[in-house]
Amino acid sequence: MPRPRYRSRKLKRVKKKVPGGATKLSYKKKTPKIHKCAECKKELKGIPRLKATKAKHVPKTKKKVSRLYGGFLCGTCARKKLKNQARLSK
């Protein structure tokens, strides 16, 4: 029976060869899913799939798009939203 924290499936299971020759189970953190647009659920471009430990060494400009709503909405959805805001302000 594995230890209690390894019983959940939040960690990925990887078989690795040990120097002795035997194969053993080891546990690995999963890579995050592709980021998606909050409205149309399309995959966002320009945003890398990084674990938190690696992401903190990457500059902010490489983790998002420099547009308004960049990294949250896709280009077309952001454009629609800004258009609507402009028309409502009239």
């Binding site: 420099s66 547009r67 308004l68 800004l82 402009a86």
Partner: peptide, 10 residues
């Protein structure tokens, strides 16, 4: 006008 696209959007 209001700019919609690019880094100057909004």
């Amino acid at each position: 006008c209001i700019k919609i696209a690019g880094r100057d959007a909004g």
